[in-house]
Amino acid sequence: MSQHYDVAAIRRAFPAAEHVVYLDSGFQTPLSRPVKEAYERFLREGFETAGPKQIWLNRLEETRAKVAALLGAQPHEIAFTKNTSESMNIAANALPLRAGDKVLMIHGDHPNNAYAFLNLAKKGVEVAFIPMTDVVNADSFRSHIDERTRAISMSHVTFHAGHRFDVESVGQLCEQHGLYFVVDVMQGIGVTPIDAKAMKATFIGSGTHKGLLVPQGLGLLYWDATRVELEPAYLAAASLAEPPLDFIARPDNMALPATAGRFELGNFNLPAIQGLDAAIDLINAVGIGNVEAHCFDLGDYLIERLDQLDVGLVGPRDRQHRAPHIYVVALPATEWLDYFTQNGIRVSPERDGIRVSLGMFNTTADIDRLIEAIRARNVPSTQARTAVLSKLG
């Protein structure tokens, strides 16, 4: 039982959680009833009426406003994309970087963030990587900034070990040095509060199939609308301030809007956007602060139970530096993943172990099932090993 909200009621909205010990929301969350119903409404409307497109587009704008509120932004600062990778590539190519400019990143951060900037080598842009440690903040970057540095790009939460980096201090550093700041929030959004303005981010990119509870195929991009010099590397009629009503392209009509719509190409993923609308309503009904607190409590419980088994944790343990919902257990994935799968426990392999990632629907009983599965495979606890050694005398 959570002290933060009625988890049992929320759990009933995720039927898959009743059939499998689902500890893999860092890969993708199970489909919830409200999101499923939103998709079904879209399909029914398309099936019965051939598609009320204007109604769907009106709902899209309502969803855009909800996304903006979730990020502490304004609706005109939000664009819809295909996924995090597309968002990060849009951001990388919109920055006015030239040959000789340098971008700072973190070694071992998500590859699709890194590749978006590494691809700029064709323009002569250099990417320099700083070391990844359990704590990354402004001081981690400070000594690496020189006269060629133009931008910093990083994740808010790491996918492979659950670091939660101090992006706010890095954003302040970027503001002090006049740097662009690009943040990937994919692993944190929907679980931990995010404030785009407190981050002082230029761009924020994310997908929606993890903490935002929507199947793959939809992404988000926040753009600081005061950065009017940032333009897309492509152009379509939908990107224009005044799309031609007669659908004839003219070289004197290429002005961009003062909104993040400049980064959109049209033909939105409408069913997923309607699913996102329902998902955000569900998150708001629970309260994102409550989701975060609940996951932190479960994480504390997981760490306590692992300590009892003398099984290690990869990444930070301190709440100040860890994500509330991502924990990597120091068990070799090659030896343990199939075993967990066979025992009805859904987790993911990661670089240094088995990733356990929590959602709003998880309970201590899910953690207990995981721990009992580990215990059953005879991973000895410190106490058990002491007893054995005592008998060997």
Results as ranks from 00 to 15, higher is better:
205 G>S: 09
158 T>F: 13
195 D>I: 02
179 L>M: 10
180 Y>G: 08
202 T>I: 06
150 R>T: 02
162 G>N: 05
167 V>L: 11
170 V>L: 08
182 V>T: 13
203 F>T: 02
187 Q>L: 11
160 H>G: 00
212 L>P: 02
181 F>D: 06
170 V>D: 05
185 V>Y: 05
168 E>A: 12
183 V>A: 10
184 D>L: 07
190 G>K: 09
198 A>E: 12
174 C>G: 06
172 Q>D: 14
197 K>C: 02
215 P>F: 07
208 T>K: 03
209 H>R: 15
181 F>Q: 06
177 H>R: 14
166 D>G: 06
164 R>W: 02
156 H>I: 00
187 Q>P: 00
186 M>R: 07
168 E>P: 00
194 I>H: 07
165 F>I: 12
149 T>I: 09
214 V>Y: 03
154 M>N: 03
156 H>L: 14
179 L>G: 09
150 R>C: 12
153 S>W: 01
212 L>Q: 05
202 T>E: 12
180 Y>R: 11
169 S>E: 09
207 G>W: 04
194 I>E: 03
199 M>P: 01
214 V>H: 07
177 H>Q: 14
173 L>D: 06
195 D>K: 11
164 R>G: 00
210 K>A: 08
192 T>H: 14
195 D>L: 09
167 V>A: 15
160 H>Y: 11
166 D>S: 08
150 R>H: 05
215 P>N: 08
176 Q>N: 10
182 V>Q: 08
151 A>Q: 08
190 G>P: 04
149 T>A: 11
173 L>F: 10
164 R>L: 13
160 H>K: 10
205 G>Q: 04
163 H>S: 04
150 R>G: 03
186 M>K: 04
174 C>F: 07
213 L>H: 06
191 V>M: 13
149 T>Q: 10
214 V>I: 11
164 R>H: 12
165 F>H: 15
216 Q>W: 01
214 V>S: 03
196 A>Y: 10
183 V>H: 08
206 S>L: 05
189 I>V: 15
156 H>V: 00
182 V>P: 04
153 S>N: 03
204 I>E: 01
152 I>H: 08
157 V>Q: 03
156 H>Y: 15
161 A>L: 03
169 S>G: 03
161 A>R: 14
163 H>Q: 13
198 A>C: 04
201 A>T: 05
154 M>C: 11
176 Q>W: 00
161 A>K: 13
181 F>G: 06
149 T>R: 07
161 A>V: 00
178 G>W: 07
216 Q>V: 05
155 S>V: 10
151 A>E: 09
169 S>R: 05
194 I>R: 04
173 L>W: 06
213 L>R: 05
180 Y>T: 01
179 L>P: 02
207 G>D: 04
168 E>M: 07
204 I>C: 03
182 V>Y: 11
197 K>H: 12
208 T>A: 15
172 Q>T: 10
163 H>P: 00
211 G>M: 07
201 A>L: 06
209 H>L: 09
150 R>A: 10
170 V>S: 09
172 Q>M: 11
154 M>E: 05
164 R>M: 11
187 Q>V: 01
192 T>Y: 13
170 V>G: 07
187 Q>Y: 12
187 Q>E: 15
162 G>H: 06
185 V>K: 05
215 P>T: 04
149 T>L: 10
200 K>N: 14
153 S>F: 13
186 M>G: 14
190 G>Y: 11
171 G>M: 08
165 F>G: 00
194 I>T: 13
191 V>N: 15
212 L>A: 06
199 M>T: 01
171 G>F: 09
